[in-house]
Amino acid sequence: MTDQSETISSNWFSQLAHPGMFMRWSAYLIWPLGLLSIVLFAVGLWFAFFHSPADYQMGETVRIMYVHVPNAWLSQFCYGLMAVSAVGTLVWRHPMADVSMKAAAPLGAAFTAMALVTGSLWGRPTWGTFWEWDGRMTSTLILFLIYLGLIALWRTFEDQLRAAKVVAVLTLVGAVNIPIIKFSVDWWNTLHQPSTFFRADGPKAPASIITPLLTMTLAFTVLFLLLHLLRMRTEVTKRKADRLEHLKIARQQKGA
């Protein structure tokens, strides 16, 4: 019984994940995701600017949090997605897992960069400096470097199929390392006693902050999923086109 249901579910999954099938079902998701993210952004921005009070501690700068926190969350969510895809590449050798990994890496780098920039713009009025070597910011910066390394590795390979497997190994090595990095940076941070008088994880946030924060986080996440989907579709198309181009070159060489 269980065996049968398992084969059915794996068939169901492998059908969905087949490149051709993927192109068909994902086409139906583009417009709903796009509209949903536009609505969520509109609502979230309205809350962020017109319907939320200034924080009693942070003042108006709390509004930076509404773009900072979603980006910081996505910087980690994206790595998680890449790590899961890397397992898909190495264990099931699934081409769509490769495509998912490749599509996610530049997005992850972009969202991490935005998290860093907004964090530092929040830090200037709050801490009095653009850059504080605090635990979160330092770990995020290291995560950004890891993203850059992954993108650089993708780009140095000519054979993208081989690249996917090698990048998958690095992605998983990074995934194992990220908790260690986080732990070591936190330890280093307590060692040097930074002059932080406010911690973002400190006092519990009131509901007036939670609503815009959640809406904006949802909006950015939906946008991320949409962009990821579009980039995956582009990559599938590109691979198809690359194959045709190879065939064309081969034909021309034979003809010549």
């Binding site: 200034a54 003042g59 713009l121 009025p125």
Partner: peptide, 19 residues
């Protein structure tokens, strides 16, 4: 937006541009 309006506007401007 209070005394730190520049930072808030800059943050939103950069994020909108990049997005």
């Amino acid at each position: 937006l209070g005394p730190h309006a520049t930072f808030i506007i800059a943050a939103y401007a950069i994020v909108s541009l990049v997005t």
